[in-house]
């Protein structure tokens, strides 16, 4: 008899909705209000290095999403068995394995991309966003929440580097995803009209400028002030 009541009590406890308000916040917060790049200013190194063109940037973004989501999931599943004294090494081992997997897959199926991104895929290991999310969230939360949190952070990173890459490729090379936009536009206005590209955008300095502008616009809108 007594066991029945216990079971009932468990049943009565309502399960949290798949996308409850709290969980939605896990995804949407890192997009703007707590963006890893523009607010926390993490992961800048790769944001500068890979963003000269859209295509490698997209591959990089997908790789980072995969690594963050999967490592958050794995660490969160293991969180109660990981010995606290070696937890950083365990996190590093998991992240490094995932990054190596991504790198191997790229090498097999997209060799040109593998060559172009070269060290930067490997450097996802040291991307502060990955370890940051593991330490701050996955170690203390359930797997599903951790996946959402990782996905949110990765999206926050991705949309920023894609935006930077869009403007750098457009102004620096006059194209988007390799499509020569500037040539088309110049064609409309006749043969004498030519849109010039800016070499500064191709160099890392261009990324700093674009990133600075994005942070400026964003902080003006949200009213965020550094404390």
């Amino acid at each position: 008899m007594s066991t029945e009541t216990v079971e009932k009590a468990i049943e009565k406890k309502p399960a949290e909705a798949l996308f409850s308000k709290r969980r939605k916040k896990l995804i949407t917060d890192p997009l703007v209000d707590d963006n890893p790049i523009t607010i926390q200013v993490l992961g800048i190194c790769s944001a500068l290095a890979v963003t000269t063109q859209m295509k490698p940037t997209l591959v990089m973004a997908i790789s980072v999403i995969f690594v963050i989501v999967m490592s958050n999931l794995v660490i969160s599943i293991m969180r109660n068995t990981i010995p606290t004294r070696v937890r950083i090494i365990v996190q590093l081992a998991v992240v490094a394995t995932l990054v190596t997997l991504v790198s191997e897959v790229l090498r097999a199926f997209a060799y040109d991309m593998y060559k172009e991104l070269s060290v930067f895929v490997g450097l996802i290991i040291t991307n502060c966003i990955v370890m940051g999310r593991l330490e701050a969230f996955a170690l203390g939360n359930k797997p599903y929440d951790s996946v959402l949190d990782g996905f949110g952070s990765a999206l926050g990173y991705s949309w920023i580097i894609l935006t930077v890459a869009f403007f750098r490729e457009l102004w620096g090379s006059g194209s988007v995803f390799g499509i020569p936009v500037f040539e088309y536009i110049s064609g409309i206005f006749g043969p004498d009209f030519k849109l010039a590209t800016n070499g500064l955008m191709v160099s890392p300095v261009g990324a700093f400028i674009i990133l600075g502008l994005i942070i400026w616009v964003q902080r003006t809108k949200t009213g965020y002030v550094e404390h």
Partner: peptide, 18 residues
């Protein structure tokens, strides 16, 4: 095991790509 397994499976494809 996971890494060496992947390397075994993807090895031929990688050599082809190279």
């Amino acid at each position: 095991l996971l890494l060496s397994g992947t390397s075994q499976v993807l090895g031929p494809l990688q050599r082809e790509a190279e």
